[in-house]
Design a protein around this nucleic acid. Sequence first.
DNA 1: GATCTAAGTTTTGTTTACAATCTTTATTTT
DNA 2: AAAATAAAGATTGTAAACAAAACTTAGATC
Lengths: 224, 224
Amino acid sequence: MDTSSPPRMETLSQGIADKLVRDITSGDLPQGSKISEPELSRRYGIGRGPLREAILRLEGMGLVIRAPHVGARVVTLTRTELSEIFAVREALEGMAARLAAENMTDQELGELEQLLETHAAYIEEHQGQAYIDQNGDYDFHYRIITGSRNQRLIRSLCDELYHLMQMYRKNSGSRTRPEQALFEHQMIFKALKDRDGELAEMLMRRHIGQARREIKQFIEPEQQ
Amino acid sequence: MDTSSPPRMETLSQGIADKLVRDITSGDLPQGSKISEPELSRRYGIGRGPLREAILRLEGMGLVIRAPHVGARVVTLTRTELSEIFAVREALEGMAARLAAENMTDQELGELEQLLETHAAYIEEHQGQAYIDQNGDYDFHYRIITGSRNQRLIRSLCDELYHLMQMYRKNSGSRTRPEQALFEHQMIFKALKDRDGELAEMLMRRHIGQARREIKQFIEPEQQ
DNA sequence: GATCTAAGTTTTGTTTACAATCTTTATTTT
DNA sequence: AAAATAAAGATTGTAAACAAAACTTAGATC
């Protein structure tokens, strides 16, 4: 009858997995850290079974890598790997933008426009400070991704790639140019409003590809 | 003493996961089947722990869905979901083709050309029989995907989406037109050989989008 | 002094047992 | 008779104990 009094502790392993994701994306568990089962088991006060399941789940998200009989470590993103992630994002979010142009409702478009106005006001007020870094940028992209109505696309981008991006941002400061990003967002929005999927995809790909090329520039000096 | 008679049983859960993948993609475990832990535990003669880990892994691949306290079932692909998968494939393999045009070695291109000649000979000999259905088509796509040199792309496509496609094919007969597919493959190969990434991507997307549109045609009569 | 070897310790992989939840079945009531 | 409730059965979630593998440390030999 009343199943709501326990405040929805879905399942232990799920809860631990979420906590681990937060700890990793927040930088609390830095890149390359060992995920020791006994230690975390003691720290969180749970058995090793649910913990292992949580780690398995993180492995599925690509946040940790496991070697048999050796254990799990938080994945270390080299710039090369980050560049690879951006290539996937470029392909996937480009497709998402194309589909969103077909499938987003007028109401969703209105809310997206409002979001952009908020961003514009904030940037003007704060003289181009990098507010977008935190959540604003993700908000914009998130709405378009969900607007694609493609569940698999949504899952790949929001449940897997986004966490990796978040992690990298915490571990290595990333600077963006808010005004430039905002303008690109506005162009993408215009294409969506015009229901021009082809243009929306092209603009989104350029928007993301921009960041990818910036990363790629710094690869040669660092590695090899 | 003798640990070599089981030929490289890396870890139990890994082995069980592979076996389950085979059983699902081969159609032995059809869509929607219940994955009962006690039953499979007895059938395979292992404890429930490794089995659960294997199921977790399959969930990460998207082959099964789990409901808390209810259990796991083999995922049932509706045509809508299959269409969604093709949209993701279109985006991802398009990008793979673009990158492959930049990164494949001349030797790899030579082997790919040989593969196409084999296909052509087979089709001519067997009067357009659907040999490509089995492995030939995948061979071609697989080589291009790995030619992208993007590990994340490779993993998404080969470890996740491919299994789902395989499963669907087993459960519902899919007819292809081998000659048409071969010609499209040859065009894509030409673009790769010319190192024309943009054209390769476009052709690959059309090649896959073709199948997507065919599926989409059959959605309305079936659902809604 | 450095390197190889071997024993010890820690960690992971696996099994077994227990508790909580859900599904099913049978009974009762309207 | 149909629907709702309650009890029984089965299944999943969790914890604790055991076995095997890997890393570490100490010792011996070159």
